[in-house]
Nucleic acid binder design. Structure first.
Lengths: 349, 349
DNA sequence: CTGAAAGCGCTTACAG
DNA sequence: CTGAAAGCGCTTACAG
């Protein structure tokens, strides 16, 4: 695999073996035209014989392109971020980029900046930040960032392209579904205030209630965990006027189902429960959960497209300086209601 | 942030501003001794004033080190791989490495090779393959790999360092727990044959039954999904002799719980059910699931340590050639039984 | 269609 | 303690 003297082969070794100059090897490697077919074949043969791989650092040094994209993400063991990351990675590879990731453990402004600086040291050509918290988004707009950037689930941010799922629309759809079943109103178990997705879902829920002229109860706040859903569920069980609950994610919905179940409340006969995310398990909860599906691979694809567009545009202009203010790019991916057995027409409790 | 003429600043710009040569800047950046404190301060000031970042490609070209590690993983929306990836990423960063990931969609020998070749083009210094399938491991041993490699959940492979959770021990513990509750035997819902983790769990279960002199039923095969657990659960529900089921992961266990529930079978009064993984939801299943916890962040830490050790050893020897056969490194992380409400002493059904 | 030359931005001995 | 020189392995005009 390596050349005779033990080090890995370089372009010059290939050139020598093929009886050409190293520029010709470079041309073959880069698919330039103007190489005689037989020369090309000789070079290819030499490359294979030596097991030659182009040195990516040398190439990056001269082309000023690393072909690396950075992704900053938060807690990849949550279903949403994990699915998004996976979609991003696939789309990036298809676009010819490598993906370097940093997982955040805490979500302060400082830690996001730190992650971006860290990725900058690796000379990434652009970054995607999966940062659904308010603090994260602010940390992105605070400083004029030197290189292309896309926020996923980022909320509205001036000059920062954003790709997000239509949280508001999804929440509205699930709330309307519950109202349509005859429920007088719908209670809401929300995610943490700092999370933009949590706010979007609150907003959609509120809009649907307002449009229907239904009473708007105070939302109860969980932290996305099944445990928080369970604890809130215990409280919900005590109020007999509650007949419908929209929970901001499936994990918390699981906790709510469990708490209501323990209290002897039958679902959906006495209380309807709906979630958000459509995790693979949701279909097998007891009962199977009505929820909202998000197209994460689409989110990945679109965010890579937005990022690569920025990179290409900048490359064409040849400017490494500040970006001129771009129009507010905001790509909203629709959400889809999935109706299962945890929601039903209202009955007396 | 950039130098006057619009391009990003280079070492020479810093040198000029600080009134030193660019070598001195390099020394400061690399923390070399033998730089006068005041020179160092001047250089630091110039670096900050210009917003200078060292060009990583140029550095990698001359040091022959990219500081990038590759991770090949399979379906990061599964709890195990996602948690492992997250542990690896954190440990790598602490060790001063960047992490470049490739997510596999199918798990053929060819796709693993392709992913490794892809990472090789980025000049990663070593790779971790989270590849719990037989085919993946074989693809790693098949070809003598040019650079350091560690397999996670890889089974026994000659010359290939492996970090894995003690699947056999975990499965034995959960089976012994069920036998200890008085069950005559324990049925098993296994994962797919190609998965080494599935096989380890079958083995531990079988060993425990053999040691107890209990009958050994044929394991039923699922595909890790809740749906497959559900379908197998429907069959289990029909056999009244079954009183205890060990399911190879929590997602399938959820499906089993659901199927038994639909059949009117009470858990754990009539049938005990246990899982494996301890996903965050497991505690909130109905009933809360007895399962086995795996320390994924430890797996991440240990696999990075093994990989970095290999890299350092190679760097010291200065050999880029073939690795000499190393002792079979195999780092086994213990698993821990977590008893909850889904398992109970045997009763008549 | 192909080669000789310059240069990308660093680090690493080597002098002093 | 600091600088002049060489070189890492490529690509990119520029000749021919």
């Amino acid at each position: 695999m390596s050349s005779e003297n033990g080090r890995s082969p370089v372009m010059a070794d290939v050139a020598r073996l093929a009886g050409v100059s190293h520029q010709t090897v470079s041309r073959v490697l880069n698919g330039h035209p103007n190489v005689r077919p037989e020369t090309q074949a000789r070079v290819q043969a030499a490359i294979e014989q030596l097991g030659y791989h182009r040195n990516s650092s040398a190439r990056a040094l001269v082309t000023r392109r690393t072909n690396v994209l950075g992704v900053v993400t938060f807690d990849t063991t949550l279903y949403g971020p994990a699915s998004t990351l996976s979609g991003i990675e696939r789309a990036a590879r298809e676009a010819g980029y490598f993906v370097s990731i940093v997982t955040l453990t805490d979500i302060s402004r400082a830690s996001v900046r730190e992650a971006l600086d860290y990725l900058a040291e690796q000379s990434v050509e652009g970054c995607i930040v999966i940062a659904p918290q308010r603090a994260a988004v602010e940390s992105l707009t605070d400083v004029s960032v030197a290189r292309p950037l896309v926020a996923v689930e980022g909320g509205r941010a001036p000059g920062l392209p954003v790709v997000c799922v239509d949280q508001v629309g999804g929440a509205r759809a699930v709330t309307e579904h519950l109202l349509g079943l005859g429920h007088r109103t719908v209670h809401h178990v929300a995610g943490p205030m700092e999370w933009l997705e949590a706010e979007g879902r609150v907003q959609g829920w509120r809009e649907a209630l307002e449009a229907a002229g239904a009473p708007i109860p105070e939302p109860l706040r969980g932290d996305w965990s099944p445990r928080s859903g369970y604890e809130i569920g215990l409280r919900l069980a005590e109020d007999p006027r509650i007949t419908a609950v929209f929970v901001a994610n499936d994990q918390m919905a699981l906790g709510v189902l469990r708490a209501l179940g323990e209290a002897g409340i039958r679902i959906p006969e006495e209380v309807s429960v709906a979630g958000f995310d459509d995790v693979p398990e949701a279909e097998f909860f007891t009962p199977p959960l009505t929820t909202v599906w998000q197209n994460f691979s689409d989110v990945g694809r679109r965010s890579i497209r937005l990022l690569v567009d920025q990179i290409d545009r900048r490359a064409r202009k040849g400017s490494a300086g500040a970006t001129e203010t771009e129009e507010d790019l905001r790509d909203v991916v629709p959400a889809r209601l999935v109706v299962r057995a945890s929601t039903a027409p209202v009955q007396l409790r």
